[in-house]
Amino acid sequence: MKKALQLLSALTTGSAAAGVLLLAGALAFVLITRGSAAISPAFLTQETREAGASGGILWQIAGTLILVATAALVALPFATALGITRAWLLPPQSRPARVLGFILQLLNAVPSILLGILGLILFTGMLGWGKSWLAGGVLLGIMIVPTAAVMLANRIESLPRGQLDAAAGLGLRRGHIIRSIILPQSAAALLSGMLLGLARAAGETAPILFVAAVFSGATIPTGIHEQPVLALPYHIFVLAQDSFQEASRTNLWGAALVLVTLVSLPALAAIPMRHKLHNAADHA
């Protein structure tokens, strides 16, 4: 009986792992076989021509980087503050802490298209920004906040209680404890959360659809008002919807390949860094 259970659990775990690997492998295979034909130095350094049938995706890459960087800058302080508030400043398991946790879950559950519409009303309409990179960056930032905040909060909750007590026992103020104990030892979790969120946000189309992205005619923004950007996911979206030319189809997959690479590079780069940070923090 016990053996059968072990076998069953091994089989389930194994097949789940195989499934995930297969899915990732298939995705990579499709992307590479269909997209690699488009990839060339020119594809990465030229602007789009003939509505995507020729030329490159330089400004789409630039736009996506601008959006993602803005999102990171917007999300980082809020995620940090909310994570620390939920896990440490509010008494653990208290009602306010639970309410804040619930709000974060709720925020995470908001469909991105709804955020897009909200942004349209707020930034484009009420604030009069028109289509602007900043609106897109802020909306993507809002998407990242719950992921990063929850990961940070979970890490803070698992920090050794003794260290926080010892620091408080020395008469260190909250700000000191946050800077000297909490942030150094949970920075890796915050980083993980930010990267997870950013990777998802970089590929989002819905939040930037109405407020930030255009298909052509934009380069580097020089202000806020009516300063849209091009973006990879939006480019892919439009090509997939409207293009019937073989060349555009290839460029679509090429753009997708670039987007996936762009998103996974920082995540890969972060693995050794996270490892190091966690090691340093867990060594106690």
Binding site: P160, G162, Q163, D165, A166, A167, A168, G169, L170, G171, S180, I181, Q185, A280, A281, H283, A284
Partner: peptide, 16 residues
């Protein structure tokens, strides 16, 4: 107050 009244715990807690 906690600076003037120090505390030593059961388990030594050193910072990493």
């Amino acid at each position: 107050l906690r600076q003037r009244i120090g505390m030593i715990f059961q388990q030594p807690v050193v910072f990493p």
